[in-house]
Design a protein around this nucleic acid. Structure first.
Lengths: 148, 148
DNA sequence: ACTATATAGTACCATATTAGTACCATTTAA
DNA sequence: TTAAATGGTACTAATATGGTACTATATAGT
């Protein structure tokens, strides 16, 4: 089904929540409430987002989290990568030598191209755009493939 | 990491193998050998591909499998969908009512747009193109997003 | 300084999904 | 009639994921 993980989904929900209060610091507790998610889950996700420099954290009372950058400067691709690592459709599209079949399977190049294309598409979508609700069915996105 | 499942990966390997001998019927056993995969796995994948009308099957001795259509007319998207269902990044992008958060989360429309974009990109890649080996790093694909 | 509040890090468990296997029924060419 | 092949179902094992708990550390306020 080519899904993002639930954790990634949650991460984007939390990021969207952090957007809209630019600069304002919100505790994990407050973010959990606002996003209708469980506190431990939100905490876990936030820690990953801090590690990858998407979110700034402040300790102590009245501490919490805020976006490290403007929502326009943060891409969906970055959030996905923060939670689940590099955007790649197959093992072999991450780097050479990860797949045992590599010697006998000629698909690596094509998987890399496809993975790269998808990664670029997600890079082009900013958190700010993501936060903008869209009625469904929305105007479809246009994607061109295999035109080098 | 946004991966396709291994089964899907195998499915494409098998389909690529079936291509190159247009029309020729190959047994699951022969396909397993050629693709360097285990017979039970290949059988399982082939059954799914038959069910979704991508592959034709013939019973009895000298039976086996062949492509149902020309490789140019089969898209990678179809193969993915055959093994793992509709191409969708989140539950909510498949159809309404699958995600409990739907009422409080405004991301559905955007996820649908992104999923659709990726699906279209994969539709544009044919099995024939996939079978054509590409040296890495290949020329990157160009994808445009959020330009309705 | 002390205390309460909040994040940081690590480690853990339970569950769900996926991969892989086995078995028996059915079809069909020789 | 027989043997070779697919069709279908059900099962097992491994892995990944989601979710939780606990301890350490930092800090604002009194």
């Amino acid at each position: 089904m080519l899904r993002i993980s639930k954790m990634t989904d949650y991460a984007i929900m939390v990021m969207v929540e952090l957007h809209g209060l630019r600069g304002e610091v919100l505790s994990a507790h407050a973010l959990a409430e606002r996003s209708h998610l469980e506190l431990p889950t939100v905490s876990k996700v936030l820690k990953l987002l801090v590690k990858t420099d998407l979110v700034a954290s402040y300790r102590g009372p009245s501490g919490g989290y805020s976006l490290e950058r403007d929502a326009e400067e943060i891409s969906v691709a970055e959030i996905i990568a923060a939670i689940e690592g590099p955007i790649a459709m197959t093992e072999c599209s991450v780097e050479e030598g990860l797949c045992a079949q590599e010697a006998v399977c000629g698909l690596r190049g094509n998987w890399q191209r496809i993975s790269l294309a998808i990664a670029k598409a997600m890079e082009a979508v900013s958190l700010a755009e993501m936060a903008q609700p869209v009625k469904t069915p929305a105007a479809p996105l246009h994607i061109t493939t295999f035109n080098a």
